[in-house]
């Protein structure tokens, strides 16, 4: 493994840990998987297993609209923190952060657009 690959692996591992910590500390919830793809100035992140047990319970008991409202509120709290983590770990300025969650598939996706391509990757 070359130096660049090692550096990327280290950055991805740090990103994953920090994002998982946010879910753990604020929601007592463990994510199943976090994956990344970097294209030039764009980072795509997929978080699997983001839906918490209370939301699943709401959904399973015919309160899907309420579960959706809860999810929107949770995402509005968590997603700015993920944006900050990306800026801090990659040492970049995020000019746009687009994110969405689907409750049925228990998946969150985010697209971060950087001002410039990260120097250290």
């Amino acid at each position: 493994m070359n130096k660049k690959a090692i550096r990327i692996k280290k950055i991805e591992s740090l990103l994953s840990q920090k994002i998982k910590d946010v879910y753990q500390y604020q929601l007592e919830h463990q994510l199943d998987n976090v994956s990344y793809k970097l294209f030039d100035r764009t980072l795509v992140i997929t978080l699997e297993g983001t839906i918490t047990s209370p939301e699943k319970l709401l959904k399973d008991n015919d309160h899907f609209c309420l579960a959706k409202q809860v999810r929107e509120a949770i995402d509005s709290v968590i997603h700015p923190q993920i944006k900050n983590i990306i800026e801090e770990v990659l040492n970049v300025k995020v000019v746009d952060f687009l994110s969405d969650t689907t409750i049925d598939n228990d998946i969150t996706g985010a697209i971060a657009i950087f001002e410039f391509k990260p120097k250290n990757i």
Binding site: T46, L98, S99, D100, T102, N105, I107, G109
Partner: peptide, 20 residues
């Protein structure tokens, strides 16, 4: 297509979609 995650920012006019 299994899933589509979509978001837009009004002030930048940008829409991002992740298609599973």
């Amino acid at each position: 297509v299994v899933d589509m995650l979509s978001d837009a920012t009004l002030n930048t006019g940008r829409t991002g979609i992740i298609v599973v």
